[in-house]
Amino acid sequence: MSTTPAISLTGLTKKFKDVTAVDDLTVDIRAGRVTGLLGRNGAGKTTTLRMLLGLAGPTAGHATVLGRPYGELPRAAHRVGVAMDAIGPVTGSTVRGELLVWTACLGLDRRRTDEVIGLTGLTGAEDRPVSGCSTGMKQRLALATALLADPEVLVLDEPANGLDPDGIRWLRDTLRELAAEGRTVLVSSHQLAEVEQTVDDVVVVQRTLRYAGTLADLTDGGAHRLEERFFHLVDAPERALTHA
């Protein structure tokens, strides 16, 4: 098991006028593991990911991925795959058309499009307009786009939203397979039961960091449910970081 952090957040803070969305977040995400970024709605998960990717500037602190800020990472688009709820498809595109746009931007061979369509179970839906796809298919398409460049790190924001039970099982298996290939997967979610079956490590945030460590340590090797520990952490008054 690698202990080199793939992602580091140091004192990361984001304020929107008088509202502090993320407050002094310091945590390392280990390479080659699936890490769940957990928190309630509005806990600062997506804002944290936006700052990590340079889409939003932090008020204080800094974030690095593979040792550099995203904007300074050589070939960042090829090394970090991203799927976020807030990122919609190109207006008017089909499934294949959407992937071809990003394949062109990345300078990849067109055949890669067919590969990721196969990997994400979108075969047969290539010519369907994205606007006519189900939520589950859109989630698969978002993951397909993230996988286009065969990245070392995957940052996925709420990838299980809108998935049916089959889709959730597919996502779980896919994330485990990706991690088994040595990739780092950071997945934000508030679906605790699902996360419990998928992740190796857990980061719990509720504006501030509430926990960072292994799932096994948090649940005492499975003696406690993640849900039980989660509510204990997020409902507790802000306190010092608990490191596993």
Partner: peptide, 18 residues
Amino acid sequence: TREYGTGTVARSVLLAGS
């Protein structure tokens, strides 16, 4: 502006390099 409406602009920025 249609990219801002759909959020596609975020991916455009991420993949553009700068």
